[in-house]
Amino acid sequence: MNRVPHRPLSVGALRSFEAVARLLSFRAAAQELHLTQSAVSRQIQALEEEVGAQLFTRGTRHVELTTAGATLQRAVLPMLERLDATVRQIRLARGRRQVSISTFASLASLWLLPRLEAFQRQHPDIDIRVSATDNMADLDDPEVDLVLRYTLPSAVPPDSQRLFGERLTPVVNAGYLAQSRAGLAPPLESPADLARHTLLEEDDNRPSAEYLSWRHWLRQQGVPRLEPARWIYLNFTYQQVQAALAGQGVALARLALVHESLARGELVEPFGAAARAHSPYAYWLITGRATRPRPELAQLQQWLLAQAAASCLALGEDAAPAA
């Protein structure tokens, strides 16, 4: 058979092939596809010409797949299933409103997602797409409507809106501190006592890591050379928080991301609010440059700003105007 080596196969012919291969009948395939039997037969013949191999053996009363046909069937079936699933998704989503948000994993896990259910209850007709990645989102990406970014004020676009600032504070599991105060674990009453405890450190080489590190905090507390009993290095902030909640050590936590755990008593500040350290970094709401104004976008923006204002109130800071 003659064939064109790089010419793509017709999807219509593949649909007919799949039906005949599954039903092993040209007549049944034609009925299922609402085509004439001769039309299905012509599509299969054209496909065999394209592939360069016979796909079926045709008997008087039966049809069987050849080896080449069976090989093609294994490739075609999952491809058509994915295609059909995608089309179903597009049809279901047609007419629904959607807003996409890009942010980093820890802010998504510790701040955004626990609150998002409330927005969805208020706006059940708006679909939210959250992309959580520590790679900096491209503000020109047409697939990104809103970006929640952690950075310096000098690094955000002029129309960005500040959500809340950054403060760092040592935190431990409430039971961990109770054991210490009961004499069942080493004391934890002053920064110098950390020499007998495990410190949970975010292992990060970005510029912001200077302010997130235990070394920076220990210098501010007057114990720059302190060495803890051991270190546990973790990739993400939310892992630090999880480890602290599990009683595995003391985390230097981002207050904005753990204040609710502190309010619930799950985490505690062993040295109190006086040991909190400030950072020049802050959390920002940024609109993508390619984003078109629409009601659902404005609704989510307003809701995010209201949630941020509530966080500011809990943190004891004023919500700041746009940069």
Rank of each mutant, 00 (worst) to 15 (best):
R96I: 06
A30I: 04
E189I: 09
Q122T: 08
A310R: 11
Q302R: 14
G316E: 06
L163W: 06
N135P: 09
S190G: 02
Q220F: 06
A29K: 04
R292E: 12
I126H: 12
H34S: 05
G183N: 02
S213T: 06
N2E: 14
R61Q: 09
Y281W: 15
G249T: 07
V20I: 01
A174V: 09
L212R: 15
A192T: 08
E317G: 01
R97S: 11
Y283G: 03
Q302M: 06
E117I: 06
G316D: 03
R162M: 03
R254G: 04
S38Y: 07
R230G: 03
A53S: 11
H278V: 12
Y233E: 15
G247W: 12
E189Q: 15
G165H: 09
A93M: 14
R3D: 02
R88I: 02
E227N: 12
V241D: 10
A244N: 08
M79Y: 12
G59Y: 01
E317R: 04
P158G: 00
A282T: 13
F104K: 11
S25R: 07
Q43V: 01
S100W: 08
W111G: 07
V268N: 04
W217C: 01
I128V: 15
T86C: 13
F119C: 04
V147F: 05
H62G: 01
Y211V: 09
H197T: 09
E269S: 15
R58W: 09
A75N: 11
L315Y: 11
A93G: 10
L304Y: 09
L112Y: 00
Q89W: 13
L116V: 10
A314I: 07
T71H: 15
A70T: 11
A155C: 02
W217Q: 10
E49A: 13
F271S: 05
V76M: 07
P186R: 14
P280E: 10
M136G: 08
Y176L: 10
T133C: 15
N135K: 12
H62M: 01
E269A: 11
E166I: 05
A282S: 12
L148I: 09
P5V: 05
E117T: 13
L47N: 06
S279E: 03
V156F: 03
Q299D: 08
A29N: 04
E227G: 05
V76P: 05
Q302F: 03
F56D: 07
Y233Q: 13
Q239V: 04
D134L: 14
Q31H: 15
P224R: 13
